[in-house]
Design a protein around this nucleic acid. Structure first.
Lengths: 219, 219, 219, 219
DNA sequence: TATGAATGAGCCTTCATTCAT
DNA sequence: TATGAATGAAGGCTCATTCAT
């Protein structure tokens, strides 16, 4: 128990250090200073700087996997939308509750070495695949007409990642989380345009006053 | 002129090295070897390893800025959709034509140091702002009902980044670029669900045969 | 008494560890693992890693000193040869019975630090001196014509050390120990050439068939 | 040429440092201080501390191998004794001319790691084999009656090593080198006893005055 | 006495940058 | 302008030893 607590303490320290400076800018010296321990103690609990970083990432990925459930279709089950929304909600919650790890994962976790990159890649691939399956389900139900489900899934994944990243980096609890999730789900599944693309396709003759100022805007 | 060519030669070498290994894994030794020049020569043309990296990023960002134009609304102008689509098309083209830089920007350019991160941040912020303005334009035109245009813009930006990243990393010219751009625009503006969310909200009683296999899927 | 047993246990463990890996390659961790004790316990019995090593060496040197007796000359005493041979026999027995320590002494015990080196040096010096005295005795008896008895003693000492080392490292009980001792004594006192150097000094005109193959040998 | 000189300079520094303190007690810091160069410069010329040590050892072993020639038997060749003596003379000269390396080889070169130990082992094995072949030659010529030529060779090798070691550590040019070589050859081939072992086998009834003092000697 | 967590000095090695030629 | 040898700060990691329990 003692041992586990010390481990946790070091992990916390490392997490905050990595989040603040990134992997390369962070030295073991930074971590032990943050944790208030001696040099050797660090290596009593972790094999290397890489190892503790990997453990942090793994921890988070596992939590994420455990919180995202396959969308099942059936009469006695919640409608797909509810299931999807619940997944989104849990994922967003995880990210927002652990901003350090979010920053690490979305900002610094890439380009360390091939193994590490592959692990991350595989995680995102798994998320993308889950989304792709959901989209294919929608296709089968006749709700989706787009053909390239892989691209569709990637767009959705990217949207989620970027929003999370944005919110975390802004470091502002911007609004009600559930409202955010609703927006996110709607944007990702339905886009921004209410009635589809048709409306965009026509030339606009009358500029509403409300946006006239945009025409010659600054940077 | 001679000097400019030498600069360009070193920049090319650095670009390919950075793309292959990332910033931290790449050493000045790698770059000068790739360029076939001596150690000292490198510093005759660039102040530091960071400087040449920054220059590569800047170069690309400038090209990108030059290729993305503000969407103007007016009777004698192309419809907003055409303008938007043209922007997307040019951006995608830029990325796909310079995969090295795409990898660098989307994978390795973050977490180097505060200056660098801020510059990148500012670039993406600018892209997000452009998208946000477009969305606000749609709002004014009554096409968009979503209120949080900032989030909407971020979702769109993330979708684009992720797709580009995916395509570049896959290293496969997957399909007609224009077709891809069409899909991208549709996804980002209209989402995947044809008729809006309503359809997802209802429970599904009948599972189409075509997706029955998905219910108990593997990994 | 309990304490002495624990000491002995740790000494045994250290001996086998040192013999297997040498002083520098062996860590205190290795020793306590081999002994099955805790880190702190080690320092309850020995001041340092160096100390336990020194104690092992001392132990062996004392045993050796106790087993090598001065060659006494007198009418009622065994002939010098018997006494010398007995000394050799006991020394060889000691080495072969404690191969771990033999390896340590003959292989790893040098170059640790000045104190340690000096102690070892002194031991070998004592052995050399004993041999030198014996040679001087022979000189006085008219059996030895060589003048530099110091060198003679060193040659003899080196011969013994090398043979022991060889046998221990080979890890094979090569032959009857007493036969070995006989050979050793003969070699060290009488050399390999039966009739002295004269025979070697003359050119060889006729190559015996038995060694013709040696003239153009391999490695 | 410049580069070779710098290499040589570092090698010299390392040689003297290793000889003075041994491999483990010597740090790269010691070597660069002795050489008067910067830390990085060391690694410009040698891969590691181990590498430079290995190079020093190799250098010496090669020189030794080049100086020891197979003893050939034939009517038109110098008598075997001359050839043997010449080998000894060259070997002794090599050692005495490079005392640093002698100390390193005879004192510190063992127990570093398996590779290193094996290399050294192989070198001594080769020397032993050469001596064994010589002894076998003597056997064939009827000059040698001892049967175990392997042991004989080891005794000879040990005698040489120990004498060299002794002389080097004493750090005194003790006498004419050729005289030393003569003694060495005689001792190694003919032992110390003029007329063979028989003389030692008889009890001694009369103690010559000249050695009476030895009977109750000091340490 | 026994434990094992904690300590921190010390070492090897890397690599961006400088500078004499 | 070009070279490449030289620099030295910085960082990861080990391990003998201490100490609170």
């Amino acid at each position: 128990m003692e041992r586990k607590q010390r481990r946790r303490q070091i992990l916390e320290a490392a997490r905050s250090v990595f989040a603040a400076r990134g992997f390369h800018q962070s030295s073991v010296a930074d971590i032990i200073e943050e944790a208030g321990i001696a040099r050797g103690t660090f290596y009593l609990y972790f094999e290397s700087k890489r190892a503790i970083f990997g453990e942090l990432v793994d921890q988070f990925l596992v939590a994420m996997k455990n919180n995202v459930r396959r969308v099942e279709i059936g009469a006695h089950l919640p409608p797909p939308y509810e299931q999807l929304r619940a997944n989104f909600s849990r994922a967003v919650a995880l990210f927002l509750e652990d901003r350090d790890m979010s920053v690490i994962l979305l900002n610094h976790a890439q380009g360390l070495d091939e193994d590490s990159d592959r692990k991350l890649q595989e995680f995102y691939d798994a998320m993308a695949l889950a989304l792709q399956r959901a989209v294919e389900g929608g296709q089968a139900l006749g709700l989706v007409s787009i053909e390239d489900t892989e691209i569709a899934a990637r767009v959705m994944l990217g949207g989620i990642k970027e929003v999370i990243h944005y919110l975390v980096v802004q470091d502002a609890e911007p609004r009600e989380r559930e409202q955010l999730v609703d927006d996110l789900v709607q944007l990702i599944f339905c886009g921004v345009i209410d009635g589809g693309l048709k409306q965009l396709r026509e030339p606009v003759s009358r500029v509403p006053d409300s946006i006239a100022h945009l025409e010659r805007g600054g940077t």
